[in-house]
Structure formats: C-alpha cells, structure tokens
Amino acid sequence: MDKHNPSSYKSSHAEASSRREENVADRIIGFIGLGNMGSHMARHLVKAGYEVLAYDIDPEKRTAFARENGTVAPGTPADLAPASVILTMVPTGAVVRAVLNEGGEKSLLTGLRPGSLVIDTTSSPPESTRELGADLARHGLLLIDAPVSGGGMGARDANLVFMMGGDSEAAVDRAAAVLSHLGNKIFRLGKLGSGHVMKSMNNYVSAAAYVGACEALIIGQQYGLDPAMMVDVFNVSTARSFATETSIRRIIAGNESRNFALDLFTKDLKIAVDLADAKAVKATLTHAVHDRMVEARDAIGGYGDHTKAYAFWASEVGDDDGRRNA
C-alpha cells in the first residue's frame, strides 16, 4: 500500500500477522495514559502477548492496571525505557512532550534506545507533531502520529480507526503491527503530521453534524415536534450521521456519561480552524461550529461529555427580542 494514498489502509488479518512476524523485536511496549480509552487499549496489547509497561500520572490507575493484568507498575515515565515502542494516549500533544521529557537528563526521551518508536495517538496540531518528530530524531528515535476515532466503545471493543502519518515506511509498518490489535482500519495518510490533519478534519465534520442536529432538535421542539420522533426521521433520511445515531440518542435517553469531553472536542475544532486560516481557506462554517462549541464550553465547563452542550444551547431560546431566557 502507498502511504501517500489517502484511501490506503490495512484491515487484513493476514497482512497484520505478517507484520507482527517481521517485528518480533517490538515485544515490550511502554503505554502512557490509562484513561477512558487507554486502559482498554493497553489491556488488549497485554492479551495480544506484548509485555506492557503501563504508566499514568495517577498512581492508583497504574497500580490497578498492573494488578489486574499481571504487569509491572512503572513509577515514572523513565521506567518505560526498556520498551522499543512507546504508545501515548493522553489529552494533548503538549502532554506527550512533557511526559517524554519528565526527569530531564534521566527522562524517557534520553533513556530510550536509538531506533525506538513513539506512536502518538493524541489529537495535536500537526506543526507541533513535526517539531516533536525532529526533536526525537536528534535522539535517534522515530515518531508516528496515529490519532484515533471510535471513543471509549471503540477502545473497549478493539474497533478503533487509526489515521497515521509518518516519514518512514518501516516505522509506519512497525506501528501498524501494534495498532492492528486495537482496530482493523489503519489509514496511511502521508508524511508526519498528516494523521493529525485528518483527525481534526474528521472531528470538525462530526461537530458540524452534531451542532446542526442539536439546533434542529431545539427548533423542532419549538413547533411541537417530539425529539425522539425527529431522531427517528433523521436516521432513515438524509440527515443521518454519527451525531443522530449516537450522540443525540444519548441526549434523549439522559445518558450523561463521559465519552468524549467537551474541551477535547473544542480543542480539535481549534486545530481545524487554525489549519484553514494557515492556508487562507475561507472556512466560514468551520469557524461558526468552533465558536458555538466554545460558547458551551465556557458556559458549562469542558470536563463533561460534549453532549452536555445541548442543554446549554436549548437554554438560549430567547424572547421575541432575542434575549436569552432566565
């Protein structure tokens, strides 16, 4: 497969098995980030036979993971240095850099053997990713950006979608061998940073559908429509999307569990806006969707699930003069 072909991806178990045979040296994986998705991902790697050194800033999380999976609990990121592959699942690219450099001269960055591979599954600005790749290269290390789609359920079911960027075909192959245990759709988008461009575009389109569906639901209710019936119509009509099939159904059911935090969603939209602005693309809707999400985040906080934005937007229904109801 051509790594520069946007439609190129690996889903064949035979191809994945072949890669695993080619990269038998990558048996120790340092996993960073044991949150809603990371804990499931790391567990799948243990089940696949890898020796997993799983670290989280929360000592209770890393101790619990080690106890439940029969692994060793590292005390600091530097303790992951025996690994030849480091996989990060943390909130931002800045956190990735901070974890790699924690400890200064005795950090994970300085402790890894030359040729070791870092797989960054975080959503980050692509320019920051390329800068990090250059920093790692000075230490003889390789970087692949492989942000994901699928959320907590996809992580739990090993059904994630990975969007990979990388400057080394061999490094992309090594990453694909590991990621094949976590999902069966692994797209090769192009050079380092391409995965993060794709992730921001994916999340922008997802957010546009989500904001649009929420606003339609709010308008429809003002005219007496039943929201559950509206969603049923959306999902057998041209308005169907992940938002109507999943997010809006969760809203109607009153499910407020945290699946994808509002602040992280908004962060990805800011990346999309910045990418458009950097190329002087007139992206009016991109800016509008970002601004709408920012309004909700600033009003209700960003820690909760993104579906909580709906209640804030619904509360904005105003009087005839447009003023927000108390």
Rank of each mutant, 00 (worst) to 15 (best):
M1A: 15
M1I: 15
S7Y: 14
S8I: 11
Y9C: 12
K10S: 15
S18N: 14
S18M: 11
S18T: 15
E22M: 14
E22R: 15
N23H: 15
V24S: 15
A25Q: 13
G38I: 05
L45V: 06
G49F: 06
E51R: 12
E51G: 04
A54V: 05
R62F: 01
T63W: 06
A64H: 02
T71N: 02
T76M: 10
P77R: 00
L80W: 03
L80D: 01
P91T: 10
A98C: 01
N101Y: 03
N101V: 12
G103Y: 02
S107F: 09
L108D: 07
P114M: 01
D120I: 01
D120L: 05
T122W: 04
S123E: 06
T129H: 10
A134L: 13
R138N: 14
L143N: 02
V148F: 06
G154F: 09
R156M: 11
V161S: 14
F162V: 08
F162L: 11
V172D: 01
D173I: 08
A175F: 02
S180V: 09
H181D: 14
L182K: 02
R188S: 13
S200G: 05
M201G: 09
N202K: 00
N202C: 00
C214E: 00
G220Y: 03
Q221C: 07
Q222P: 06
Q222A: 15
L225H: 02
M229A: 14
M229Y: 08
D232N: 10
V236W: 06
A239C: 10
R240Y: 05
R249W: 06
G254H: 10
N255I: 09
S257I: 11
N259I: 14
A261W: 06
F265M: 15
K267Y: 02
I271G: 06
A280Y: 02
K282R: 13
L285M: 15
V289I: 15
V289F: 04
D291M: 12
M293T: 09
D298I: 06
G304T: 13
E316P: 07
V317L: 09
D321I: 08
G322R: 04
N325M: 14
